[in-house]
Amino acid sequence: MRAFDYHQAADGTQAIEQAVRCQQAEYLGGGTNLVDLMRETVERPRTLIDVTRLSRDITDTDGGGLIIGAAATNAALAGDARVRRRYPLLARAILSGASAQIRNMATVGGNLLQRTRCAYFYDTATRCNKREPGAGCDALEGFHRYHAIFGTSSSCIATHPSDMAVALVALDARVHLRGPAGDRQLAITELHREPGERPDLETELQPEELIVAVEVPPLAMAVHSQYRKVRDRASYAFALVSVASMVELDGDIIADTRLALGGVGTKPWRAWQAEAALRGQPATAATLAAAVDAELAAARPLPGNTFKVELARRLMIAELSQRLSDARNGGDA
């Protein structure tokens, strides 16, 4: 690990002042990803600015949503009674990720900004465009079972690893940012970038900009939302495919729905195409099949992860069918 300087920030404004003043500074949350990457010399900051003293409060908004301080731990958010009641998919997604020890350490802001677990990104003896722009990508013809089928490019196929982010994307959360130029908000669906030619640029954050909070808007149908994760072992593994879903029925018509996927995208994947094909349509098997096809039309699998297309298809259909039957039975899951 390269030597670094350490500062603790009392709040977001101070963190930004420190980051502007220091060379090659990075913000440190729970450290569960950054410390590991520093040990592997993938990350080599000269300064760490500890932002775990930022707000960790989870507060109600007027309309019935929540504002979550960026320093709230993953465990605290998943355990919050309001989250469990209003947004069960968010609690379930968080609890499906990592281990209890890691969830106790990891922050909400850090979870959103964690790096991919692509083994080539971690292994400095291999080529990786994300780690070293222009170097090439050894995953393309390597072991890419865990890699993305959506949003990929010829430069990068690395998967965004977060479960929590998939739920937040489905909920249309907003991230509250603070930077040297002031405060702004961003739809969480706009936070992460697809790799294109520049897989090293992962988010729309400007230099020194910091996530200070995440806002989850009120959403009635989210009370019956769910998150289902398929992986290589029963617990403590990243997703092969995961599905965040919810529906609202009006008689036999799908009035509204949200669908997002994990384990398959270079960013937390909102299934916009499927949603568009479901809204306003009769709640039939044919509608579901057509909607899922519409989403999967954009999939670009490689030999090692072609299985994810069929897995994603079956999982989306199974989950949407379950949400519909729950909704028909009075919404009690």
């Binding site: 590991d36 760490l48 020890q101 890691i102 106790n104 350490m105």
Partner: peptide, 26 residues
Amino acid sequence: NQGACGACTVLVDGERINACLALAVQ
């Protein structure tokens, strides 16, 4: 030493964490 096994688990203010991923200074 990378958060995968839990052998380093300790309690901080009663909550379990992986000591290998924790910087002592923090």
